[in-house]
């Protein structure tokens, strides 16, 4: 074990692989010294496992109705009670992890590369390209995100895919800003000039040399933004514009439980705890990652 460790922490790595593995290992070590970051990572690991093994964990089907067991309070048989159709809420919350995970991953996969590319192009070329792209970014940045997402969903029609598109449209500008700022810091540095002199195309410089250097601050920002994305997606679900019934999406479940909030509080309350837990997980991990990957920003708040 200790030899692997020595190999990873070697100060003069012999290969690229050893260098990058060693870097990851050092970051992991730094991250593991931050208890909140570990807690956040643990919560997200649980989310992943829950989503992957939902059929094994859930005691009942998320869709199976049992009208004889409507609106039962939490008990040993139904940990989180049952809803108005007698469905087991715990099972639905478990399956809901899949939907939340899917939304979060899709939004990140769409908006982060989009923002990254726009910001890198803007910073790399400068001039009027920069002015136009950043003008567009600033316009989007100064709009209320939730309202904009609502209006987009209204035009596209309700549904989980459209909710993802609407959230992605409203979240890329922040990433473009970061990528541009990062690009500007090394745009005129020697290694970029050297690559250009070697005859590398703009495309190659951007994709092979600029984008990789922007990724760490991007990862931090995306992780920190995840809580907001989850809340917006749940909000769209709550308003009936996101995931549609009978899908066990947490926001939509809260919306159904709204009618019973005064007497059968558990129907609306339980999915809310799941949302809070997962959002907190992303906040904790994001804070920890920021301290490790982006020390300039950390320590202030």
């Amino acid at each position: 074990m200790s030899t692997t460790r020595d190999w990873l922490l070697d100060d003069s790595p012999a290969s690229r692989l050893q260098a990058s593995l060693g870097r990851s290992y050092r970051m992991l070590l730094a991250l593991s010294r931050n208890p909140l970051a570990v807690l956040g990572a643990a919560i997200l690991l649980i989310l992943l496992l829950t989503a992957a093994f939902a059929p094994l964990i859930a005691p009942h089907s998320p869709f199976g109705q049992n009208l004889g067991a409507r609106l039962l309070a939490p008990s040993a048989a139904h940990w989180m009670g049952t809803d108005e159709l007698g469905r087991n809420i715990f099972s639905r919350v478990i399956y809901g992890a899949r939907i939340t995970l899917m939304i979060v991953v899709l939004v990140a996969v769409i908006s982060a590369p989009l923002g990254l590319l726009i910001g890198a192009i803007s910073g790399y070329f400068g001039g009027w390209i920069d002015k136009i792209l950043m003008g567009l970014t600033d316009v989007f940045l100064s709009m209320p995100k939730l309202i904009l997402a609502l209006a987009f969903v209204a035009a596209l029609g309700p549904g989980i895919e459209n909710a993802v598109i609407a959230i992605a449209i409203t979240s890329w500008p922040a990433y473009a800003r970061i990528a541009r700022a990062e690009t500007l810091t090394f745009r005129n540095s020697e290694f970029i000039a050297a690559t250009q002199l070697l005859g590398a195309s703009h495309l190659r410089v951007i994709t092979r040399h600029i984008l990789p250097l922007c990724t760490s601050s991007m990862i931090v920002r995306v992780t920190l933004d995840m809580a907001g994305i989850i809340l917006t997606a749940a909000g769209l679900g709550f308003l009936g514009l996101g995931a549609q019934p009978p899908l066990p999406e947490w926001g939509a479940m809260i919306s159904r439980g709204r009618t019973f909030i005064l007497d059968q509080w558990w129907v609306a309350t339980m999915p809310g705890f799941a949302i809070i837990l997962v959002s907190l997980g992303f906040c904790f991990l994001g804070d920890g990652l920021r301290d490790v990957l982006d020390p300039k920003q950390g320590g202030k708040s």
Partner: peptide, 22 residues
């Protein structure tokens, strides 16, 4: 501050109604 980032406003509204009103 952490709860401000991670609690859905609509959920808090419903819980508030259940607790402080009902």
């Amino acid at each position: 501050a952490l709860l401000g980032y991670s609690v859905p406003a609509f959920w808090l509204g419903l819980v508030g109604l259940a607790v402080f009103y009902a």
